[in-house]
């Protein structure tokens, strides 16, 4: 039987009676990203005041080598590296969901006001006298979720439209931003500086327990998204086509947004509102693999690589150690300007 020419190399993967068509280019890009993540992880585990060669890192990971090497790699540095990989992926998937559902590449937790909402929640917790890390985290997650709910309710009119969601999100975001400034001005200098650093997003002080908790919460959500993906592909064709082909657009959109907010909350709880990964990673992945949609898997890999590389730059490349959020904003900012310039050239 002659195969229909789909216009690009493709493999249909068969496992038993299960079948899944995969683009060759996506497979290659995915493999390269995975390799990049492994290399970056090994490098980042070796960097620091006590520096290790890649060989030493690999031996320590395998449970061999000196006791100090193992302590440094497994106990001091591994949680931070795993957090960068896991939460980079989590943020990127959340961004891909926001952008797919709104059909707008600008939709992300930063633009939609979730990041500012989380920061507001955290600041309110500080003002209320919360001192422990876990209370600040609860404040941040609550702030993000309340902001998301407020945006949802304000944007809801006969269902959720992507454009309205973004406009309302930008408005709420601006409002919360000024509230945050005001809250910071009310604080003691030292508290305000600590809070500002948290607000930029940072991997400093991420422990093994936090990473384990984040993995337990996020991995089931990520796995469950496999069910949603075919429905999202129908949604890409417009609400009417999606509905007419048997996918229910309202339900799909609602589910995707709830999962995205949950994923952002998990990431915020551990590393604060790290900007731009959710915005840029899905678009970078799409350009690398040239897919006509935002692939959740490739977005996850790109997000992991992006946050990992940003953290290496933040910690080791620059003369001063910066919060990783500052680097992702810079990297993402450069990327965003490039994207807009390209878009303008294309339309001119």
């Amino acid at each position: 039987m002659m195969r229909v020419d789909v216009g690009y190399p493709r493999h249909v993967v068969r496992i038993g009676s299960a079948t899944l068509p995969l683009r060759r280019r996506s497979l290659v890009v995915g493999a390269l990203l995975l390799a990049a993540i492994v290399v970056l992880a090994v490098v980042s585990l070796g960097l620091g005041t006590y520096s290790l060669t890649p060989g030493q890192v690999v031996r320590a990971l395998a449970g061999q080598g000196g006791a100090l090497d193992r302590t440094v790699v497994l106990e001091w540095r591994l949680p931070r590296t795993l957090a960068a990989v896991l939460l980079g992926a989590v943020l990127a998937v959340a961004g891909a969901l926001f952008q797919t559902v709104t059909r707008n590449p600008l939709a992300s937790p930063d633009v939609l006001g979730l990041a500012n909402g989380a920061f507001t929640g955290m600041l309110l917790a500080v003002v209320a006298g919360a001192a422990s890390w876990s209370l600040l985290t609860v404040g941040a997650v609550a702030g993000g979720v309340v902001a998301a709910a407020a945006i949802w309710l304000l944007a809801h009119r006969n269902g959720i439209s992507g454009f309205r969601l973004i406009i309302v999100g930008i408005g709420v975001s601006a409002l919360l931003s000024s509230v945050n400034t005001w809250l910071l001005l009310q604080m003691e200098l030292e508290t305000a500086m600590f809070a500002s650093a948290w607000g930029a997003g940072s991997l400093n002080g991420v422990g093994a327990a936090a990473v384990r908790g984040a993995a337990l919460c996020s991995l089931p959500l990520l796995a469950a998204l496999a069910v949603l993906v075919p429905r999202l592909r129908q949604l890409d064709l417009g609400d009417d086509v999606a509905a007419a082909s048997g996918a229910r657009p309202e339900a799909v959109r609602r589910t995707a947004l709830i999962v995205a907010v949950a994923l952002v909350s998990i990431a915020t709880a551990v590393i604060g509102p790290v900007a731009f990964v959710a915005l840029a990673a899905p678009q970078i992945a799409r350009r690398l693999a040239r897919t006509p949609y935002l692939s959740l898997g490739l977005s996850a890999l790109t997000g992991a690589a992006l946050l990992l590389v940003s953290d290496v730059i933040a910690q080791h490349v620059l003369p001063v150690a910066l919060p990783v959020g500052v680097v992702t904003v810079s990297v993402g900012g450069v990327y965003l300007v490039m994207m807009i310039v390209r878009e303008i050239r294309r339309r001119a």
Binding site: D236, L237, G238, V241, R290, P292, Y293
Partner: peptide, 9 residues
Amino acid sequence: TAIAPEGIT
């Protein structure tokens, strides 16, 4: 209202 995603064959 059908939308063709950019870059789809």
